[in-house]
Design a protein around this nucleic acid. Sequence first.
DNA 1: GTAGAATTCAAACGAACGTTTGAATGAGTA
DNA 2: TACTCATTCAAACGTTCGTTTGAATTCTAC
Lengths: 232, 232
Amino acid sequence: MSSPSARSGPETRGRILDAAEALFVEHGLDATSMRMITTEAGVNLAAVNYHFGSKDSLIHEVFRRRLGELNQSRLAALDRAEQRARANGTQIKPSQVLEAFFTPSLEMATDTVHGGRTFMQLLGRTYTEPNAFVRKFLAEEYAQTLQRFLQALYDSLPGVPREEILWRFHFMMGATSYAIAGTDALQLFAGRFDDEDPAHMLPRLMSFLLGGLRAPLPDFVTGAESVARNAE
Amino acid sequence: MSSPSARSGPETRGRILDAAEALFVEHGLDATSMRMITTEAGVNLAAVNYHFGSKDSLIHEVFRRRLGELNQSRLAALDRAEQRARANGTQIKPSQVLEAFFTPSLEMATDTVHGGRTFMQLLGRTYTEPNAFVRKFLAEEYAQTLQRFLQALYDSLPGVPREEILWRFHFMMGATSYAIAGTDALQLFAGRFDDEDPAHMLPRLMSFLLGGLRAPLPDFVTGAESVARNAE
DNA sequence: GTAGAATTCAAACGAACGTTTGAATGAGTA
DNA sequence: TACTCATTCAAACGTTCGTTTGAATTCTAC
């Protein structure tokens, strides 16, 4: 579509952000030029530097405006789960921690109206972004949230070595990023899926992730004896 | 290190490939310029175009030389596993299929001597590469291998819908790419891991992947009844 | 040792990049 | 109407990009 009509207005900033978001997904950060962005947004070339200062600052803002919202949803969900557990006098379950973390991602990825899906695809791709500047502010943006969730996972799996929980959380983020970045990430699976309904991805992914978390620890950790069966 | 001495010789091609591989991992494909590559390799700027024709062709060759070898290892491992099963008159197990696919990746990722580790990090990052040209030849390079392995997985899990197997294989590739691309992919986990011994990653990852594959199917698939417990 | 092919080299090419400039435009206030 | 301030605009800036050129050099074979 892309309607480069609509003579400006004060929504120039937002139009630039939306256009940049979409183009970043399609071509990557580097391969998306200022001219592509301003043409798609229907604004003057100089508008980006006027409103954001630089291309790097624009990139930062594209991520910031959505990531703040996403991580707040995650933390709120974790708060609710912990409160519920405390009210019942029970320990929070690993599955509840994972759901609090990954459900908001998938919900945002399902939202095709407000551009959430576009952004989550972008975010999924950006987890492996080599650009040092991008990696830095993404790490900062995630730091507190990740800290909270790892602690919650540790608490919910008292018998399992933290090192192993960390590794599995790492694997889970990989599976999720990949799943969200698109079934056609590599075109390897293009055309093979019959059911790409995003609403079905959440239960599919959660089931897979929980299975991975519950799996017996490798032999060299346990001394050939499985002890990590206390997950739910 | 990087020794830009050694007055050329016929190994100019190889030096360029190695330098490009390392720089692609560090900065990404776009952000790595011809001048960076030729400087690192200690060759003249024009050497890339002379030996490879263009930057795109160089990129293609960087992937081709290692990917062929990797997929041949995978197929050979699958052949051996199927032969063994046929000799015993048994069906091949899902775990054996997965091991045949993912073990060669991890082995290559562990090889720090011949640059295998560098390449696998690059490959992990490239699964989400937006560059259409790169995606195209990677898909071609993978097509046959993926076909064989998916069929083997289908055969080893006769009771499970193919759609679900496909999704889980997708998730598994995500977890693996992410794991290999580096524990510091996002610097999110930087400094948190005590044990980054690559030799320990394989059992950790295989355990996680098998757990995910074995997990009960989501309710909307089974009608709230689990049927996917036949994995090993 | 000399012809001829293969390779390396310094220099330059046009194109595209992110950014800056200074004038034109518009709305809000006195 | 005149002034102000924010925004938009066309044009140009200097830099870096991938690639090409043609001469210099090295290697190979007779």
